[in-house]
Nucleic acid binder design. Structure first.
Lengths: 196, 196
DNA sequence: TGCAGATAATACTAACCGGTATTTTTTATG
DNA sequence: CATAAAAAATACCGGTTAGTATTATCTGCA
C-alpha cells in the first residue's frame, strides 16, 4: 500500500514540473513516463486518463502549495498592507520554485485549459476563489484594526491586486527577467499606501 | 496576385478566430483547412509551416488591431485618467470581438507559447512594449498638463495598469462572466484618481 | 489566344498521440 | 510459505498530427 502511493505521488510531482515548464498539451504521457521511469501500465493503473491526472495535480500538488505560499502568509501578520506586500514581494522575488520564465502555474493552466475544459476550469476557479476569500478577510480585518480606510471596498481591492499579480507574471514570461517585477512592486506599495 | 492575397488573408483571419477560441496547440492545420475550405496545398504554398502562420497572425492580424483598439484611443483624449479608464472599460465591457470566456488573445498566446518558442515570445514582447510605450507617453503628457501628480512614475503606473488588465481577463476566463470586471473597473477608477 | 509562372488540389507518410488488453511481478496477509 | 489481490510491465492499436511530393488548374500578360 505504501509504495504504490509513492509512485502515484512521484508521477504527480514530476508531471507537474514538466507541465509547469512545457504546458499541459505539449507534455505527453510518454514524456511523463520517460522522466519518471514509470511504465504505462503503472500510469494507467493510477489514473483513468491524462485529464484525471491533470485534475489530481491541481488538487493534490497545487492546492496544498497554494495554502502554504499564498494563504498562510496573509494570516500571519496583523497589518494587511504589510502582509499583502510581503506576500507578493516574496512570490515574485524570493520564491525559488516559481520561475520567471514559466509564469504562475495556476495562470498557465487557466490560460491553456479554459474555457474548453470545464473540469479544469472549475477546479482552478476554486483555487482562485480561495485566495480571493482570504485576501478579502485580510483587508476587512485591516479595516477593523484601523490599518485601512473604512470606505475601502475589500473585494474590489482584492480583485485589483490578484489581477495585477497574474498580469505581472505574464510580463515576466515575456521579458524573462525579474527586473520587470521591481517597478511593479514599487507601484503596488504606492497603491497599498493609498488605502491607508 | 489579388486572389492569392485574399486566400492568405482568409487563412490568417479564420485561423486567428479558431486559435482565439481553442488555443494554438489544439487548433490543427486540418481544423483551419476545414473551416477555411482551403486545401493543404494552398496552405503550405502560403506558409512554410504552422509556426510561420502563427507569427504572421500576430504581425498581420493582431498588431494592426492593437493599434486601433489599444493605442489610438489613448492618444485621442487630453486627460490621461479619462483616456485610460475609457480604454480599459471599453476593452472589457464594450468591445464585441474580445469575448470574456476566451480572454485576451495576446495573453493567451503568451501563456501558451512562452518561453519555449522564442520567435513567438519576441513578437509578443514587441506588442506589449508598444502598448506600454504609448501608455507611458500618455501619462507623461498628463503630468505636463497637470492632470497627474508630478511625483508619479509613469512606467511603474503603466506596468501596474497593464498587469491588472491582463490579470482581470484571466479572472474573466475563470468565471466566464463580465460581472467580475465591474468591481475591478471601480477600483481601477479609484486607483487612477489617486494619481491626480 | 497561348503559355509560363503562380496557385491550388490530391494523395501520401512517418512520427506521435492517448489509451487498452494482456501478462508478469510484487506485496500484504492468512 | 501459500495465495490472492494489488501494482507494474509489455506490446500493441487506431486516430491524428504536421508536413511533403506530385500533379493539376488557374491567371495575367505578350
Amino acid at each position: 500500500m505504501k509504495k504504490a502511493e509513492a509512485t502515484r505521488l512521484h508521477i504527480l510531482q514530476k508531471a507537474f514540473e514538466l507541465i509547469y515548464v512545457k504546458g499541459y498539451q505539449t507534455t505527453s504521457v510518454d514524456d511523463i513516463l520517460a522522466t519518471t521511469q514509470v511504465t504505462k501500465g503503472a500510469f494507467y493503473y493510477h489514473f483513468k486518463n491524462k485529464d484525471e491526472m491533470g485534475i489530481a495535480i491541481i488538487n493534490e500538488i497545487m492546492k496544498p502549495s497554494l495554502i502554504n505560499s499564498f494563504i498562510v502568509p496573509l494570516q500571519q501578520q496583523e497589518n494587511p498592507v504589510e502582509a499583502i506586500w510581503q506576500l507578493i514581494h516574496h512570490l515574485l522575488m524570493k520564491n525559488e520554485f516559481l520561475k520567471v520564465a514559466y509564469g504562475c502555474p495556476a495562470a498557465n493552466f487557466t490560460y491553456e485549459m479554459t474555457p474548453w475544459n470545464s473540469d479544469f476550469t472549475q477546479v482552478l476557479d476554486e483555487l482562485a476563489r480561495q485566495w480571493e476569500k482570504v485576501m478579502i478577510q485580510t483587508i476587512e480585518r485591516g479595516k477593523k484594526n484601523k490599518y485601512i480606510r473604512k470606505d475601502v471596498n475589500a473585494r474590489q481591492v482584492t480583485l485589483f491586486i490578484i489581477s495585477g499579480y497574474w498580469g505581472i507574471r505574464n510580463f515576466g514570461k515575456l521579458e524573462n527577467s525579474r527586473s520587470v517585477y521591481l517597478p511593479y512592486l514599487k507601484e503596488l506599495k504606492n497603491y497599498l499606501h493609498s488605502l491607508t
